[in-house]
């Protein structure tokens, strides 16, 4: 089990437990979490799964994937150095405890 905490724009924290191999997006969708849309189902075509990785987890989540940068340009909220497409962050034991922050809007 890998624990992920999603912090909504208004500060609400939701803790979910996923399996290694799930993505931060798919875990949120599977649990009906508001704040991540994931319209393209993780094919990196929509940017509606935008999140900001907590400072403490930057190193563990690593660099953006090939092509992620381009698609982030279509995100509706501000893209910062912490921005990731949550469908491109794959859970592993090393990410147990991960904290991500969600933007105000996805579409």
């Amino acid at each position: 089990m890998v624990k992920v905490t999603y912090v909504a724009h208004d500060g609400t924290r939701t803790e979910l437990e996923g399996d290694p191999g799930d993505s931060v997006m798919s875990l949120a969708i599977a649990n009906g979490l508001d704040g991540i849309v994931g319209e393209c189902g993780g094919s990196m075509m929509c940017a509606t799964c935008h999140c900001y990785v907590d400072d403490d987890w930057q190193a563990a989540t690593g660099a953006r994937m090939d092509g992620e940068e381009d698609m982030l340009e279509s995100a509706v909220c501000e893209v910062t150095g912490r921005s990731r497409l949550s469908c491109q962050i794959t859970l592993s034991e090393a990410l147990d405890g991960l904290v991500v922050h969600l933007p105000e809007e996805q579409v």
Partner: peptide
Amino acid sequence: PVGHVAFGAGIHGCVGQNIAR
């Protein structure tokens, strides 16, 4: 119906889906 596979899934998932939508 989030998760439907009409556009496929994964790395080959439909690249034209935004046009279609």
